[in-house]
Simulated assay, not measured.
Amino acid sequence: MILVVGGAGYIGSHTVKELVDSTEVVVLDNLSTGHCWAIDENAIFVKGDLGKEEDLEKVFSTYSIDAVIHFAANSLVGESVVDPWKYYENNVVATLTLLKVMMKHDVKNFIFSSTAAIYGIPEDTFLTEQSLTKPINPYGYSKLMVEQILEDFSQAYGLRYIVLRYFNAAGAHESTSIGESHDPETHLIPIILQHLLGKREKISVFGKDYDTPDGTCIRDYIHVTDLAHAHILSLNALLMGKKQMATYNLGNGTGYTIKEVIETCEIVTGRQATIEYVERRAGDPAQLIASSEKIYQELGWKAKIKLPAIIESAWNWHKRNN
């Protein structure tokens, strides 16, 4: 049985939807940012808090857990700057509580949801797992701290873990039953689609003078179902004893400018966007593209869904849930 912490959230719910086809799944979520409607009906749902040891004890005492997939984190970069306490408490301290209970119940297989934010402003065009990690905000630091904790726990207590560092998750499940729903929404593709549905007056683009083909930032977008499959492959590698510890980047390996993303959304939807160019945001690098060669070589994973199909899946979900 697999415990998915944060399984009512965006990436967590998509992973649960793929997992329930082959194994029993328990979802633990406090629904602070997740949604009941996103939890697959075939999963067992327990409402509880990652940072409360008694909530975790209840789960580990009730169910026979073989592995844990950890999605439950606060992830807004701007919020982490103005409220770092919240991020270090939930992303670091609460994770330590989870690991403590896992060790007590002899559960030693762990998949951790990390982020490209640990790289900060990169020096490399294509980021590999060996690229310099130098976060520029508390969110990135909180994730990097957990990565170090996992390495220490592996050496001291025999924890088996895989860290997945992903870039820009996007898209929705092909059934349109679940998709991306944040409040507030900060991700580019849903913001564009909300605008094209008439929910936003315009799209604000931060900077048009970067050293890129059209002056706007370049980012790497990956479909959320591709991410889910990477988690399942990683989980199987741990359970089958193929891996003791590993870290992988997850991305498409292809960068798109903000302008290209907007234009693709216009083509998919057949609607015209109103764009406002504003000042750059502090700390925004010109380009972030992932090399996922390592996980391809070791586990055979490669992103399959490209940008037009990513946007089409998101558009289908937004239209249904407008």
Rank of each mutant, 00 (worst) to 15 (best):
A228D: 02
A228E: 00
L235F: 05
G241E: 01
E185L: 02
S114H: 08
T186A: 01
E180L: 14
V205L: 00
A237R: 13
T225W: 02
R200Y: 11
I111H: 03
L227D: 06
V163T: 15
P190G: 01
A246K: 11
A117G: 09
I232A: 12
N168K: 08
D214L: 10
T115H: 01
I149E: 00
S175L: 02
L159N: 11
R219M: 07
Y210A: 00
N236W: 13
Y210M: 03
D220A: 09
G215T: 10
H187M: 12
L193T: 04
S154C: 10
Q148I: 11
F206H: 14
H195W: 04
D220S: 06
K242N: 09
D211Y: 07
F112H: 06
T186K: 09
Y161F: 14
S131N: 02
S177E: 15
P122F: 04
S114D: 05
F167H: 08
S154W: 06
D209Q: 06
S113D: 12
D214I: 13
Q244Y: 13
T125N: 08
Q244G: 12
F167N: 05
N137I: 05
D124N: 11
Y166H: 11
G207S: 09
A169G: 15
G241T: 06
G158H: 07
T225A: 10
K199A: 08
T247Y: 03
H231A: 10
K243V: 15
E147A: 12
Y119C: 04
T115F: 01
S234Y: 05
M240T: 15
N109W: 09
I192V: 15
E180I: 11
P190M: 03
V205G: 00
M240A: 15
N137C: 14
T186M: 03
L239V: 12
I189N: 05
L227E: 03
A228G: 09
S142K: 08
S131M: 02
S181R: 13
D211E: 14
D183F: 12
L188W: 02
R160I: 08
S234I: 11
Y166S: 07
L150H: 10
R165N: 02
R165C: 01
P138Q: 02
A172M: 03
T133A: 05
I121Q: 04
A172N: 06
S177Q: 14
D183E: 14
R165M: 04
H229S: 05
